[in-house]
Protein backbone atom coordinates (compact mmCIF):
# COMPACT_ATOMS: atom_id res chain seq x y z
CA UNK A 1 0.00 0.00 0.00
CA UNK A 2 1.20 3.50 -0.84
CA UNK A 3 -0.27 6.91 -1.54
CA UNK A 4 -0.27 8.38 -5.05
CA UNK A 5 0.87 11.71 -3.63
CA UNK A 6 4.11 10.00 -2.58
CA UNK A 7 4.64 8.97 -6.20
CA UNK A 8 4.30 12.64 -7.17
CA UNK A 9 6.88 13.70 -4.59
CA UNK A 10 9.30 11.03 -5.76
CA UNK A 11 8.86 12.02 -9.41
CA UNK A 12 9.85 15.62 -8.67
CA UNK A 13 13.08 14.36 -7.11
CA UNK A 14 13.70 12.08 -10.06
CA UNK A 15 13.20 15.03 -12.42
CA UNK A 16 15.50 17.34 -10.50
CA UNK A 17 18.52 16.74 -12.74
CA UNK A 18 16.63 18.71 -15.37
CA UNK A 19 17.44 22.27 -14.31
CA UNK A 20 14.38 23.59 -16.09
CA UNK A 21 12.16 21.88 -13.54
CA UNK A 22 10.84 24.26 -10.90
CA UNK A 23 8.35 23.58 -8.12
CA UNK A 24 5.67 25.89 -6.78
CA UNK A 25 3.90 25.47 -3.47
CA UNK A 26 0.97 27.12 -1.72
CA UNK A 27 1.67 26.13 1.88
CA UNK A 28 0.71 22.49 1.31
CA UNK A 29 4.03 21.01 0.22
CA UNK A 30 4.02 18.71 3.23
CA UNK A 31 0.69 17.33 2.05
CA UNK A 32 1.20 17.20 -1.72
CA UNK A 33 4.75 15.88 -1.14
CA UNK A 34 6.63 18.55 -3.03
CA UNK A 35 8.47 19.18 0.27
CA UNK A 36 11.14 16.61 -0.61
CA UNK A 37 12.11 18.65 -3.66
CA UNK A 38 12.01 21.86 -1.65
CA UNK A 39 14.40 20.47 0.95
CA UNK A 40 16.98 19.46 -1.65
CA UNK A 41 16.44 22.26 -4.19
CA UNK A 42 15.25 25.33 -2.30
CA UNK A 43 16.57 27.67 -5.03
CA UNK A 44 14.18 26.09 -7.52
CA UNK A 45 11.19 25.98 -5.19
CA UNK A 46 8.87 28.97 -5.06
CA UNK A 47 6.71 29.47 -2.04
CA UNK A 48 3.52 31.28 -3.00
CA UNK A 49 2.02 31.31 0.46
CA UNK A 50 -1.67 30.55 0.68
CA UNK A 51 -2.35 32.09 -2.72
CA UNK A 52 -3.31 29.66 -5.43
CA UNK A 53 -4.26 32.23 -8.05
CA UNK A 54 -0.86 33.86 -7.88
CA UNK A 55 0.81 30.43 -7.91
CA UNK A 56 -0.80 29.35 -11.17
CA UNK A 57 0.18 32.51 -13.03
CA UNK A 58 3.66 32.67 -11.57
CA UNK A 59 4.02 29.17 -12.99
CA UNK A 60 2.71 30.45 -16.33
CA UNK A 61 5.32 33.21 -16.37
CA UNK A 62 8.03 30.65 -15.66
CA UNK A 63 6.76 28.38 -18.43
CA UNK A 64 6.76 31.30 -20.88
CA UNK A 65 10.42 31.82 -20.01
CA UNK A 66 11.48 28.25 -20.71
CA UNK A 67 11.04 26.55 -17.33
CA UNK A 68 8.97 23.44 -16.58
CA UNK A 69 6.85 24.33 -13.55
CA UNK A 70 5.15 21.79 -11.31
CA UNK A 71 2.63 23.46 -8.99
CA UNK A 72 0.59 21.64 -6.38
CA UNK A 73 -2.02 22.16 -3.71
CA UNK A 74 -5.13 20.29 -2.61
CA UNK A 75 -7.39 19.35 -5.53
CA UNK A 76 -10.16 21.46 -4.05
CA UNK A 77 -7.95 24.58 -3.94
CA UNK A 78 -6.81 24.22 -7.54
CA UNK A 79 -10.41 25.06 -8.29
CA UNK A 80 -9.99 28.52 -6.78
CA UNK A 81 -7.49 29.20 -9.55
CA UNK A 82 -9.65 27.69 -12.28
CA UNK A 83 -9.92 30.87 -14.27
CA UNK A 84 -6.17 31.43 -13.99
CA UNK A 85 -5.74 27.92 -15.38
CA UNK A 86 -8.20 28.71 -18.14
CA UNK A 87 -7.07 32.16 -19.23
CA UNK A 88 -3.45 32.26 -18.08
CA UNK A 89 -2.31 28.69 -18.73
CA UNK A 90 -4.59 26.71 -21.07
CA UNK A 91 -5.38 29.52 -23.51
CA UNK A 92 -1.75 30.39 -24.27
CA UNK A 93 -0.98 26.64 -24.02
CA UNK A 94 1.83 27.05 -21.49
CA UNK A 95 3.17 23.75 -20.14
CA UNK A 96 2.33 24.28 -16.49
CA UNK A 97 1.75 21.04 -14.56
CA UNK A 98 -0.81 21.40 -11.82
CA UNK A 99 -1.28 18.65 -9.26
CA UNK A 100 -4.26 18.47 -6.93
CA UNK A 101 -3.76 16.09 -4.05
CA UNK A 102 -6.46 14.89 -1.66
CA UNK A 103 -8.96 14.35 -4.48
CA UNK A 104 -12.28 12.63 -3.95
CA UNK A 105 -14.33 11.56 -0.93
CA UNK A 106 -11.60 9.01 -0.13
CA UNK A 107 -9.79 11.99 1.40
CA UNK A 108 -11.82 11.11 4.47
CA UNK A 109 -12.11 12.78 7.83
CA UNK A 110 -11.26 16.32 6.72
CA UNK A 111 -14.85 16.38 5.52
CA UNK A 112 -16.66 17.71 2.47
CA UNK A 113 -14.75 21.00 2.18
CA UNK A 114 -11.58 19.05 1.33
CA UNK A 115 -13.16 16.35 -0.85
CA UNK A 116 -13.02 17.60 -4.41
CA UNK A 117 -15.58 15.72 -6.49
CA UNK A 118 -15.60 18.04 -9.50
CA UNK A 119 -11.94 18.69 -10.38
CA UNK A 120 -11.71 16.14 -13.19
CA UNK A 121 -14.86 17.51 -14.77
CA UNK A 122 -13.86 21.15 -14.75
CA UNK A 123 -10.29 20.71 -15.96
CA UNK A 124 -11.46 18.30 -18.65
CA UNK A 125 -13.44 21.13 -20.23
CA UNK A 126 -10.31 23.20 -20.89
CA UNK A 127 -8.78 22.99 -24.37
CA UNK A 128 -5.09 21.94 -24.39
CA UNK A 129 -5.17 20.51 -20.84
CA UNK A 130 -4.23 16.86 -20.22
CA UNK A 131 -6.05 15.36 -17.23
CA UNK A 132 -4.59 12.46 -15.23
CA UNK A 133 -5.82 10.50 -12.24
CA UNK A 134 -3.42 7.61 -11.52
CA UNK A 135 -4.29 4.70 -9.22
CA UNK A 136 -1.01 3.94 -7.46
CA UNK A 137 2.29 5.50 -6.49
CA UNK A 138 4.27 3.73 -9.22
CA UNK A 139 2.10 5.00 -12.07
CA UNK A 140 1.85 8.46 -10.51
CA UNK A 141 5.62 8.70 -10.42
CA UNK A 142 6.01 7.56 -14.03
CA UNK A 143 3.19 9.71 -15.41
CA UNK A 144 4.47 12.77 -13.58
CA UNK A 145 7.91 12.21 -15.06
CA UNK A 146 6.40 11.91 -18.53
CA UNK A 147 4.71 15.28 -18.05
CA UNK A 148 8.10 17.00 -18.12
CA UNK A 149 8.32 16.16 -21.84
CA UNK A 150 4.81 17.39 -22.62
CA UNK A 151 4.40 20.64 -24.54
CA UNK A 152 0.97 21.38 -23.11
CA UNK A 153 -0.44 21.96 -19.62
CA UNK A 154 -1.82 19.26 -17.36
CA UNK A 155 -3.87 18.60 -14.27
CA UNK A 156 -3.11 15.51 -12.17
CA UNK A 157 -5.28 14.38 -9.29
CA UNK A 158 -3.59 12.40 -6.54
CA UNK A 159 -5.11 10.93 -3.38
CA UNK A 160 -4.35 11.47 0.28
CA UNK A 161 -4.69 7.87 1.48
CA UNK A 162 -2.83 4.69 0.63
CA UNK A 163 -4.06 2.34 -2.06
CA UNK A 164 -2.73 -1.02 -3.32
CA UNK A 165 0.32 -0.93 -5.58
CA UNK A 166 -0.70 -2.15 -9.03
CA UNK A 167 2.30 -1.57 -11.26
CA UNK A 168 5.28 -3.16 -9.51
CA UNK A 169 7.03 -4.89 -12.39
CA UNK A 170 4.60 -3.44 -14.94
CA UNK A 171 6.22 -0.01 -15.21
CA UNK A 172 6.68 -0.25 -18.98
CA UNK A 173 2.90 -0.25 -19.51
CA UNK A 174 2.50 3.32 -18.26
CA UNK A 175 2.04 5.95 -20.93
CA UNK A 176 0.02 9.17 -20.95
CA UNK A 177 -3.12 8.67 -23.02
CA UNK A 178 -3.09 4.86 -22.92
CA UNK A 179 -5.45 2.95 -20.66
CA UNK A 180 -4.10 -0.26 -19.15
CA UNK A 181 -5.90 -3.60 -18.99
CA UNK A 182 -5.23 -4.68 -15.42
CA UNK A 183 -7.39 -7.78 -15.63
CA UNK A 184 -8.80 -9.39 -18.76
CA UNK A 185 -12.40 -10.64 -18.91
CA UNK A 186 -15.17 -11.19 -21.44
CA UNK A 187 -18.61 -10.18 -20.12
CA UNK A 188 -18.20 -6.60 -19.02
CA UNK A 189 -15.44 -3.97 -18.95
CA UNK A 190 -15.01 -1.90 -15.81
CA UNK A 191 -13.20 1.33 -16.67
CA UNK A 192 -11.88 2.97 -13.52
CA UNK A 193 -9.49 5.65 -12.35
CA UNK A 194 -7.67 6.49 -9.13
CA UNK A 195 -8.67 4.74 -5.94
CA UNK A 196 -11.50 3.01 -7.79
CA UNK A 197 -9.14 0.80 -9.78
CA UNK A 198 -8.42 -1.43 -6.79
CA UNK A 199 -12.11 -1.36 -5.84
CA UNK A 200 -12.89 -2.54 -9.37
CA UNK A 201 -10.43 -5.44 -9.03
CA UNK A 202 -12.28 -6.45 -5.87
CA UNK A 203 -15.58 -6.16 -7.73
CA UNK A 204 -14.25 -8.35 -10.53
CA UNK A 205 -13.31 -10.98 -7.95
CA UNK A 206 -16.78 -10.81 -6.41
CA UNK A 207 -18.33 -11.23 -9.88
CA UNK A 208 -16.53 -14.53 -10.46
CA UNK A 209 -18.89 -16.20 -7.96
CA UNK A 210 -21.79 -14.92 -10.10
CA UNK A 211 -20.19 -16.57 -13.12
CA UNK A 212 -19.23 -13.22 -14.61
CA UNK A 213 -15.86 -12.53 -16.19
CA UNK A 214 -14.96 -8.82 -15.99
CA UNK A 215 -12.18 -6.81 -17.58
CA UNK A 216 -10.72 -4.05 -15.41
CA UNK A 217 -9.09 -1.05 -17.05
CA UNK A 218 -7.04 1.64 -15.38
CA UNK A 219 -7.98 4.76 -17.32
CA UNK A 220 -5.38 6.99 -15.66
CA UNK A 221 -5.66 9.54 -18.47
CA UNK A 222 -9.10 11.13 -18.50
CA UNK A 223 -8.08 13.46 -21.32
CA UNK A 224 -7.11 12.68 -24.02
CA UNK A 225 -9.36 9.66 -23.59
CA UNK A 226 -8.12 6.31 -24.95
CA UNK A 227 -11.03 5.95 -27.34
CA UNK A 228 -9.44 3.07 -29.20
CA UNK A 229 -9.37 0.94 -26.06
CA UNK A 230 -12.95 1.87 -25.18
CA UNK A 231 -14.10 0.90 -28.65
CA UNK A 232 -12.31 -2.44 -28.36
CA UNK A 233 -13.96 -3.08 -25.00
CA UNK A 234 -17.39 -2.08 -26.26
CA UNK A 235 -17.03 -4.59 -29.07
CA UNK A 236 -15.49 -7.43 -27.07
CA UNK A 237 -17.48 -7.16 -23.83
CA UNK A 238 -20.65 -5.39 -25.00
CA UNK A 239 -21.23 -3.74 -21.62
CA UNK A 240 -19.28 -1.03 -19.83
CA UNK A 241 -19.10 0.22 -16.24
CA UNK A 242 -17.20 3.33 -15.21
CA UNK A 243 -15.99 3.79 -11.65
CA UNK A 244 -14.64 6.99 -10.12
CA UNK A 245 -14.48 8.77 -6.77
CA UNK A 246 -15.90 11.87 -8.39
CA UNK A 247 -19.26 13.38 -9.15
CA UNK A 248 -21.28 11.27 -11.55
CA UNK A 249 -21.48 14.43 -13.68
CA UNK A 250 -18.68 15.24 -16.06
CA UNK A 251 -15.78 13.05 -14.96
CA UNK A 252 -14.56 9.71 -16.32
CA UNK A 253 -18.12 8.40 -16.63
CA UNK A 254 -19.15 11.51 -18.48
CA UNK A 255 -16.20 11.25 -20.84
CA UNK A 256 -16.86 7.59 -21.61
CA UNK A 257 -20.59 8.25 -22.06
CA UNK A 258 -19.85 11.05 -24.51
CA UNK A 259 -17.65 8.77 -26.57
CA UNK A 260 -19.93 5.72 -26.53
CA UNK A 261 -23.16 7.56 -27.27
CA UNK A 262 -21.70 9.30 -30.29
CA UNK A 263 -19.70 6.41 -31.69
CA UNK A 264 -20.67 2.96 -30.52
CA UNK A 265 -23.79 2.94 -28.31
CA UNK A 266 -23.24 0.32 -25.62
CA UNK A 267 -24.95 -0.39 -22.27
CA UNK A 268 -23.12 1.80 -19.75
CA UNK A 269 -23.51 2.05 -15.98
CA UNK A 270 -21.68 4.88 -14.23
CA UNK A 271 -20.52 4.42 -10.65
CA UNK A 272 -19.67 7.72 -9.00
CA UNK A 273 -20.71 10.21 -6.36
CA UNK A 274 -24.40 10.86 -7.00
CA UNK A 275 -24.29 14.65 -7.23
CA UNK A 276 -24.00 15.21 -3.49
CA UNK A 277 -21.35 16.35 -1.03
CA UNK A 278 -19.48 14.08 1.36
CA UNK A 279 -18.86 14.36 5.09
CA UNK A 280 -16.24 13.33 7.65
CA UNK A 281 -15.49 9.62 7.71
CA UNK A 282 -12.73 7.11 7.13
CA UNK A 283 -11.73 6.54 3.51
CA UNK A 284 -13.38 3.12 3.26
CA UNK A 285 -16.48 4.37 5.06
CA UNK A 286 -16.76 7.18 2.53
CA UNK A 287 -16.66 4.81 -0.43
CA UNK A 288 -19.52 2.81 1.15
CA UNK A 289 -21.52 5.92 2.04
CA UNK A 290 -21.14 7.27 -1.49
CA UNK A 291 -22.17 3.87 -2.88
CA UNK A 292 -19.04 3.52 -4.96
CA UNK A 293 -17.23 0.68 -3.16
CA UNK A 294 -16.72 -2.74 -4.78
CA UNK A 295 -20.20 -4.22 -4.13
CA UNK A 296 -21.74 -1.22 -5.89
CA UNK A 297 -19.42 -1.68 -8.85
CA UNK A 298 -20.33 -5.39 -9.02
CA UNK A 299 -24.07 -4.53 -8.98
CA UNK A 300 -23.53 -2.00 -11.74
CA UNK A 301 -21.73 -4.64 -13.80
CA UNK A 302 -24.70 -6.99 -13.50
CA UNK A 303 -27.10 -4.19 -14.50
CA UNK A 304 -24.97 -3.37 -17.53
CA UNK A 305 -24.81 -7.00 -18.61
CA UNK A 306 -28.59 -7.36 -18.23
CA UNK A 307 -29.03 -4.46 -20.61
CA UNK A 308 -27.22 -6.26 -23.44
CA UNK A 309 -29.68 -7.09 -26.20
Amino acid sequence: MAATRDGYGQALLDLADNEKVVVLEADLGKSTKSLHFRKQYPERTISCGIGEQNMLLTAAGLASSGFIPFASTFAIFTERAFEQMRNGVARPNLAVHLCGSHGGTHTGTDGSSAQSIEDLAIFRTLPNVVVLHPCDDVSTRLLTMQLADLSQPSYTRTARNKTPVMYDGRESEIEIGKGVIIKQGTDVAIIACGVMVSESIKAAEQLISEGISATVIDMHTIKPLDEELIETMAKSCGAIVTAEDHNIIGGLGGAVAEYLSSNIPTPLERVGVKDRFGESGQADEMLDLMEISSPHIASAAIRAINRKK
Binding site: Q53, N54, L56, G61, L62, S64, F67, Q84
Partner: peptide
Protein backbone atom coordinates in the same frame (compact mmCIF):
# COMPACT_ATOMS: atom_id res chain seq x y z
CA UNK B 1 1.54 37.19 -11.10
CA UNK B 2 2.65 36.27 -14.62
CA UNK B 3 5.28 39.00 -14.44
CA UNK B 4 6.43 37.52 -11.16
CA UNK B 5 7.08 34.22 -12.92
CA UNK B 6 9.04 36.08 -15.61
CA UNK B 7 11.01 37.92 -12.92
CA UNK B 8 11.91 34.69 -11.09
CA UNK B 9 12.93 33.19 -14.43
CA UNK B 10 15.28 36.10 -15.05
CA UNK B 11 16.82 35.66 -11.63
CA UNK B 12 17.26 31.89 -12.07
CA UNK B 13 19.03 32.53 -15.37
Amino acid sequence: SFGMGCAISGRLK
